[in-house]
Design a protein around this nucleic acid. Structure first.
Lengths: 237, 237
DNA sequence: ACCTGAACACCGTTCAAGT
DNA sequence: ACCTGAACACCGTTCAAGT
C-alpha cells in the first residue's frame, strides 16, 4: 500500500531538520508506536508526531501519503515482531494454535496500537509472510485450496478480532477496567432467580470465567471444527 | 452510561430553536442514526448533527455530555432494535446462529456506534436480557452449567469481536475501504509462485473469499464444536 | 532534495450573553 | 430555562517558498 516516494534509504541524502533529526520511515514508525503506547491512541496525530520527532508535521508527507499509511506501517511492524523467528513444527493444529496465541499476546503487549491496526489489511512484507505461512500450514495438513482459504480467513479474522477486543479491554484506564470486572460481581451475581433464573444458576461460573479472555476457548473450538472437517475430507478421498 | 442533565421529558419546558425544532434525546439519537445511514459514518460530527437538526452544535451538550455518550445512546437503541421481538425456536443451534447473525448485521448497519460499544460491558437492561436469553438456550440444550458459561463466553465474545472487526472495516473512510479491497487483487494475486507458492496457488480463492466477512464461517465452526461437545457429554450421561 | 510555514477546511467543547 | 455565538485548542493536508 505505502510506496516510497524516494529512492531506497542508502541512496538518499537527507538534511537534518531544524532540530537536528534525520528522518526515516523506520524512525517515524518507531516514534509513532512509542507515542501510542505512552499517551494513548488519540495521541497519534501528524502534528504531535512531528513535534515528537522534532520536525515540521508536513515533512512526514514524503514518507507516508496519509495518516492511514503510517498506521498500516505501524501495524506491519507489530506483525513482524510477533512472527519473527517462528517456525512450523509439522503438526498443523499445534502450529495454528501457537500462531493464534502469539498474535493475541502480541496484541496485548501493545494494546493501543493493536486496537488501531488489528482490522487493517496492510499488503506489506510482514503481513504477506504471515499469510504465506498460514496457508502453507493448512495446505500441508491436506485442506483442499478452497477449504484452506476459508479456514485461513476464519482463523486470521478470529485471531485479529479477539486481539482487538481484548486489547481494547487492556487499554482502558485502570479504574474503568476495574469497574468492568466488577459488573459481574456487583450486577449479574445479584440478580434474583425469580426474574433471571439462568444467570442466577450460573453466577458463580460467570464471575470466575468472565475474568479471562475467551480466545483460547474460541480458538480451540475453531481448530476442533477444522479437524472434524479434515477427517471428513480424508474419509471421502 | 448516559445520564440526563435535565429532568424527565414530560416536565421540561423547551423553547424551539431558531429554526423551529424542539430538541429531545430521542430526536437527537434518531437524527444521528439517519445521518450515519444517509451520509456514511464520517458524517456524524457535533457540528453536522447540529446543522441537520436545525440547532446550534453547542445546544446538544445539555443532552449528551460527550460525543461518546451520544454514540452509546445510539448503540443502546441498536441493541434494543436487534433483540426486540426475538423469540427462541427450541432448536438451540439455529437460535444461536440467528442471534449471532442478528448482532453482526445490526453492527454493520451502524458501524461507528458498533465499534465504540462492542468493547464495553454495560450491565444495562438490554445486555442483561441478552445474557439471560443465551444462557437459557445453552442450558436448555443440555450443557452443564460450567460448560454453558464457557460456550456462552466464547459465543458472545466472538459475535462482539467480529462485529467490531467488520464494523471497523465498514467505518473506514471510503478511499481507505476501497484501497483495502484492492490489496488482494493488486498485491496478493500478483505474487510469484517462486517466492510465495501457497498464496500463488490460492490467489483466485483469496480474491473471492476475502471480500466477505468470515463471521458466518467462524460462527458455524464454533457451533459445530459446541455440538460435538454436547454429544460427548450426552454419551457420558 | 528536503524541510518549512502559511493557509484551508474542518473538528469537539466551553461559557458568557441573549431571549 | 434553553439556545446561541464566539472563542479555544485542536485536526489532516496542500503547496509555494526557503535552504
Amino acid at each position: 500500500m505505502t510506496e516510497r516516494v524516494v529512492p531506497p534509504a542508502e541512496r538518499r541524502r537527507r538534511r537534518p531538520t531544524k532540530q537536528g533529526v534525520v528522518l526515516s520511515e523506520e524512525l517515524i514508525v518507531a516514534t509513532a508506536l512509542r507515542l501510542i503506547e505512552e499517551h494513548g491512541a488519540e495521541a497519534l496525530s501528524v502534528r504531535r508526531l512531528g513535534r515528537a520527532l522534532g520536525a515540521d508535521p508536513s515533512s512526514l508527507y514524503r514518507y507516508f501519503r496519509h495518516t492511514d499509511d503510517l498506521l498500516l506501517a505501524v501495524a506491519d511492524e507489530l506483525i513482524g515482531r510477533t512472527l519473527r523467528d517462528w517456525r512450523p513444527t509439522g503438526d498443523w493444529r499445534a502450529d495454528l494454535r501457537d500462531l493464534g496465541l502469539r498474535v493475541h499476546s502480541g496484541a496485548l503487549g501493545h494494546p493501543r496500537a493493536a486496537v488501531l491496526s488489528a482490522y487493517r489489511v496492510t499488503g506489506r512484507a510482514h503481513e504477506i509472510q504471515a499469510v504465506e505461512t498460514i496457508l502453507g500450514v493448512l495446505r500441508g495438513a491436506g485442506f483442499p485450496d478452497p477449504e484452506a482459504v476459508r479456514v485461513y480467513h476464519a482463523f486470521v479474522d478470529q485471531a485479529l478480532a479477539f486481539s482487538a477486543l481484548d486489547a481494547a479491554g487492556a487499554a482502558l484506564p485502570k479504574p474503568a477496567r476495574d469497574a468492568e470486572n466488577a459488573v459481574w460481581q456487583a450486577t449479574y451475581a445479584r440478580l434474583p432467580a425469580g426474574t433471571h433464573p439462568n444467570i442466577a444458576a450460573t453466577a458463580r461460573h460467570l464471575v470466575a470465567d468472565m475474568r479471562h479472555s475467551s480466545y483460547p476457548t474460541a480458538l480451540e473450538m475453531l481448530l476442533s471444527a477444522a479437524e472434524a472437517r479434515l477427517f471428513e475430507i480424508r474419509g471421502r478421498a
